[in-house]
Structure formats: structure tokens, C-alpha cells
Design a protein around this nucleic acid. Structure first.
Length: 279
DNA sequence: GCAAGCCTGACC
DNA sequence: GGTCAGGCTTGC
């Protein structure tokens, strides 16, 4: 599942491989992954040079050189659950569930978008629309300051796990890293942010930065589908402490890891290291 | 038939 | 403000 570290890895890969290159054509094999009109999408991209690749939270942002007759200067991608970008030779075997092909300048390589579940979306938007999108996301989870983190958490009711994942207080965490950060900071997924003491919130802030930093270094987690630009899996999987380890021994205390549904999402935690909050 | 991320809509 | 269910899709 692409969360911040996976999206960061993809962004770095794209930066390395396609920065400065021009998109000669866009072929849409399945329009379901395109937000808006597919014809418009293809028209906006055709002939455009890629001048920057960045991200905020889990949103991948590909900036195009401004060009006459083109309003949308940004290709923004949300990878959903199984979205994948690869840079491949045009002649290479086209893997199943490839939905978009962006031919690059010499016509020998292309950017491919693959997405088995088709929960991901690609959209071409203007700078104004990008601004609105970015404003709808909280500070990036990798760079959020202590102050912003405390401020965002303080007023919140409801489960801290839901807050970590809702992209508004901070953006970039999904199920894997939310569970991992809560474990590292020894906080129960049902704890209420507004009721936690400051030291606990500071622990959580540090845990978020730590787990994301390490996961970025290891190029993300390949639980099921995630692969980078070159088709390689990430290396964080063996470092997972709780995610998808239900029934296995906690690496810290040996208790069995439990699973609990919070906000409709499965949460994995150690009942001893992360005691249930007093209510 | 469930699970995943994200959106929408219903409800309190 | 908050929760919850439903829909999207497909592989297990």
C-alpha cells in the first residue's frame, strides 16, 4: 500500500528517470483511473516537458512546463492501494492492469501507470486547483513540526488512529505506518489525542518521523503489490513491529499482537506495550 | 466474502 | 465534530 515512504520512493525514481523529458503522447487504456475527461487529460499532457516531481503526503505531483494553450500545469496522482508507476521500454511486455502509457521523447521509453484495484486517480490540474488540493491536506508527516503536531492533536476527539490516518491533521500516514508509529510511542490506537499528555504526543511525533525516515531509507514496504519505478520491492517489511503480525509475539515484550477494528480499519497493536487508555 | 484507501451521504 | 455504511475493484 503506497503511503508516504512509497510515494517518496516513486517520486525520487521519477525524478531520476524522467525529469526534463517531454511527453510525446498519452494512451489511455482504461479511463476509469482518469479524473475528468480522458480526452482533455491526454491533450493536456501531450507535448509537455516534465520539470519537477514532488509530493505532499501521499499525493504525487508532476509539474509540467507551462505551454501555450495548456491550462493544467500539474499532473497529480493518488496511487490508491495498488497504483504503480514504472518506466519501461515501449517494446517491453505490457503487464496486465496497465491503464495509462505516457510515451517519452525518443519514443523508446514510456511511463506506465498500472493499478490492479483501480482505486488510484490521475488528474491534470491548474496551479489554482493544486493550491486548493494542497490546502486540503495537513502538513506533510515527514516534516511536520512539534508545534503543528501538538496543535493539531490537542482539540481532537475520537480515536488517535483515525486522526493519524485522516490526512487533515497531518498527511502521508496510512494503515501500516500509523500502526507502527503508535507501537513505537506505546500508544493504544483508541487513545484520544486531546486526552493524551504532552510527553505521549511528543513521543508519537518523534515516532512518526522515525518510522517514516527509516522506511524512506529502505524504499518502503512491499506488503502485497507495491513496487518502485524499476519494479523493485521495498525493504521495510522485516522491520514491521505490529502491522499484519496478529497472533505473533511482540518484538519488545513477547505478548501476542492483537487486531482491533478502529474507524473501519484493522489496527495491530501490542496489548502490553500499548495499554488501553482510561476513559 | 473479505480487505484495502478514499469519498460521499446518512445520522447523531 | 464525530461515527458508520456503501461503493469502487479484484485477488485471495
Amino acid at each position: 500500500m503506497p503511503e508516504l515512504p512509497e510515494v517518496e520512493t516513486v517520486a525520487r525514481g521519477l525524478r531520476r528517470r524522467v525529469l526534463g523529458r517531454r511527453i510525446l503522447g498519452a494512451e489511455i487504456l482504461h479511463s476509469g483511473v482518469i479524473a475528468g475527461e480522458p480526452e482533455n487529460f491526454a491533450r493536456e499532457l501531450t507535448g509537455r516537458q516534465i520539470v519537477q516531481v514532488s509530493r505532499k503526503g501521499k499525493a504525487l505531483i508532476i509539474e509540467l512546463e507551462p505551454a501555450l494553450g495548456h491550462a493544467a500545469d500539474f499532473l497529480v496522482v493518488r496511487l490508491g492501494m495498488t497504483g504503480q508507476f514504472t518506466v519501461r521500454r515501449t517494446s517491453e511486455f505490457l503487464e496486465p492492469h496497465t491503464h495509462v502509457r505516457l510515451t517519452l521523447d525518443e519514443r523508446e521509453t514510456e511511463i506506465r501507470y498500472r493499478d490492479t484495484r483501480r482505486f488510484g486517480r490521475l488528474r491534470c490540474i491548474t496551479e489554482d486547483e493544486l493550491r486548493v488540493l494542497l490546502a486540503s491536506l495537513g502538513p506533510d508527516a515527514q516534516t511536520i513540526t512539534e508545534e503543528d503536531f501538538l496543535r493539531a492533536a490537542r482539540l481532537r476527539h475520537g480515536a488517535i488512529k483515525s486522526w493519524l490516518m485522516n490526512q487533515k491533521g497531518l498527511s502521508g500516514l496510512g494503515n501500516i505506518y500509523a500502526d507502527e508509529a503508535l507501537f513505537l510511542s506505546r500508544i493504544h490506537p483508541l487513545a484520544q489525542p486531546g486526552r493524551l499528555r504532552k510527553p505521549a504526543l511528543l513521543r508519537l511525533h518523534r515516532a512518526v518521523l522515525k518510522v517514516l525516515g527509516r522506511a524512506v531509507e529502505l524504499q518502503g514496504t512491499s506488503f502485497r503489490d507495491y513496487l518502485d519505478i524499476e519494479g523493485r520491492p521495498g525493504n521495510f517489511l522485516p522491520r514491521l513491529q505490529v502491522y499484519q503480525r496478529t497472533g505473533l509475539a511482540c518484538r519488545r515484550c513477547g505478548s501476542r499482537i492483537r487486531r482491533l477494528v478502529v474507524g473501519g480499519r484493522s489496527s495491530h497493536f501490542c496489548p502490553r506495550c500499548q495499554p488501553r487508555p482510561r476513559r
